[in-house]
Amino acid sequence: MSSTSENVDDRLSMLPEDILSRILSLMPTKYAVGTSVLSKRWRYTWTSVTNLDFDYTRRSPNMITLKFVDGNEEKFTKFVDRVLKFCKTSHLKSFRLHISSSGVSQSSILNWIDNAVRLNVRELDVCVIQSELPLSLFTCKTLTDLRLEPSDCDLKRWEFPSTIYLPCLKTLDIFLCDNPLAIQGCCPVLESLSLNVSCYVEQDFILNIPTLKRLNLLCISIYDDDNRKIILRLPKLEYLFVDGELCSLFEMEDVSSLVEASISCSACSFDFMWADILNKLRGVQKLTIANVSLFFFK
């Protein structure tokens, strides 16, 4: 080996341990663990990573997750189990778990998420096929960011349990949830929320979160003659984004703090809904409107 390349190799290995653990935290966990075969010096370095990132998905050419089974599920399960066993951190900064294989057992996934909660996880990003989640997740005291997304086009829906208390949660992104309104009153510092409005009951959708600054709504109409209203009681709201279909009348009680609004919805049969929402958003500093056709996605 030439002396220059030796030097270059040494430079990385010579970095202090805390810098290396930060660098190894910035890549998918399989790469971080992979460095353990480099040399004795690297053998246990990865165990001090503060982020864990597991991805076992397959995607179509247009990047939509596909359901599959490829026979390596057992290996993947063992790998995640071992990483969680050897990982030294007691304060996990982020935990990302994306799985679109239906061959990974539900109990393993529940167990991994439960483990992340035990490791005081702050940011949790879960995209899996199943719709069950461990109850411990909903009373996690350290969680600041939570993202829950169903993994395939079966689109099973999440359901919040009756006991929720997330005292530090600031950001919640949840796609396809049966009872998204259950979080009201359970997240005292929630600032950012993304969710779908796809009600099966003919009730008004009332969102009442005094701390919320950013809201991203995905509206899906179920009934053509939708008479439900979306009522927003969000006195601190600064950013409002609406996607999907504009299918309900909006009622906004106080929009004085609104800075930016973006409505990009598919063509709606009722022009008065556009007129209504534009009227409500008068006075907002920045407004973006797009009439998106859903045919694009077919």
């Binding site: 247009n62 990047m63 939509i64 086009c153 689109l155 899906i220 009934y223 999907g244 996605f297 077919k298």
Partner: peptide, 21 residues
């Protein structure tokens, strides 16, 4: 690409609900 995935997801979700209707 990941940012774009989300916008696709929105579309697929809408279509899904339409078909269930």
């Amino acid at each position: 690409v990941n940012a774009w995935v989300f916008s696709c997801f929105v579309g697929v979700t809408c279509l899904y609900f339409k078909s269930k209707k």
